[in-house]
C-alpha cells in the first residue's frame, strides 16, 4: 500500500482521526472502570476504618462528617454499634513529612483514647520512614491505648513520650503531627 503523503490536509485528517478514536476508546474504558474503581476505593477505606475502631454495625462512610481545622476539613467516620458511638475513625494528614504529605486513619474511642492508627498513603523513604506502616514494623503499636492528654505526642528528642523510628525522626515527628491534628479536631467537633 502506498504511503500517505505528508500534505497539510492529510496530516490534519490523520491527527484528528487518531485522537478522536483514542478519545472514544478511553471514554468507553473510563465508563466501564468507573464503578469498580469507586468500589475498590470504598473497600480500601472501609478496611482502614475497620482496622482502627472497635467492631461496629453501621456504615461509617455514609455517616461521615467534616470538622474544619487549620483552614482544611478533617473527615470523621463515626463507628456505631446498636446506635451507640463506639469510636471515630478520623482521616488526618500532615504536611511535615519527609517527602510530600502523608495521610493517616486515626481511630479514637469516645473518650479520646487512641485505639489504633493505620497509614493510608505516604511517600516516605522505603526501609526508613516506611517503618510507620504496620506491616513493616511494630513501631506504631506504641500509640495504641494511650490518651493524648497523658501521653505527650512528640518524639523524645523534642521532650515528648514517643520513641522515634531510628534514623527517621522527621517521619516520626510528622506522624505525631498528624495524630495531634486528629485529636484536636476530635476535641473541637467530635463529641456531638
Amino acid at each position: 500500500m502506498a504511503k500517505t503523503k505528508s500534505s497539510l490536509i492529510n496530516m490534519l485528517l490523520t491527527l484528528v482521526l487518531v485522537t478522536a478514536i483514542s478519545g472514544l476508546v478511553l471514554g468507553f474504558v473510563y465508563e466501564a472502570t468507573k464503578g469498580p474503581i469507586e468500589k475498590s476505593k470504598l473497600a480500601k477505606k472501609n478496611r482502614a476504618i475497620e482496622n482502627v475502631v472497635p467492631v461496629f454495625d453501621n456504615q461509617p462512610v455514609a455517616e461521615k462528617f467534616g470538622v474544619p481545622m487549620d483552614g482544611d476539613t478533617i473527615v470523621f467516620y463515626p463507628a456505631k454499634k446498636g446506635g451507640e458511638i463506639v469510636g471515630y475513625a478520623i482521616e488526618t494528614y500532615t504536611k511535615k513529612a519527609f517527602s510530600g504529605t502523608f495521610k493517616l486513619m486515626v481511630g479514637l474511642l469516645p473518650d479520646g483514647t487512641i485505639n489504633n492508627i493505620a497509614v493510608l498513603e505516604h511517600k516516605e523513604t522505603p526501609g526508613l520512614g516506611d517503618k510507620m506502616e504496620k506491616k513493616k514494623s511494630e513501631w506504631s503499636v506504641q500509640f495504641n491505648g494511650k490518651h493524648p492528654d497523658s501521653f505527650k505526642l512528640m518524639v523524645k528528642k523534642d521532650g515528648g513520650d514517643v520513641d522515634a523510628i531510628t534514623a527517621s525522626t522527621i517521619s516520626s515527628r510528622a506522624y505525631c503531627d498528624a495524630v495531634i491534628r486528629a485529636y484536636n479536631a476530635f476535641k473541637k467537633g467530635g463529641k456531638k
Binding site: T4, K5, T14, V18
Partner: peptide
Amino acid sequence: VKSFIPDKV
C-alpha cells in the same frame, strides 16, 4: 495503521 499515517506526523 503505518501506511495511513503521513511521515511528518
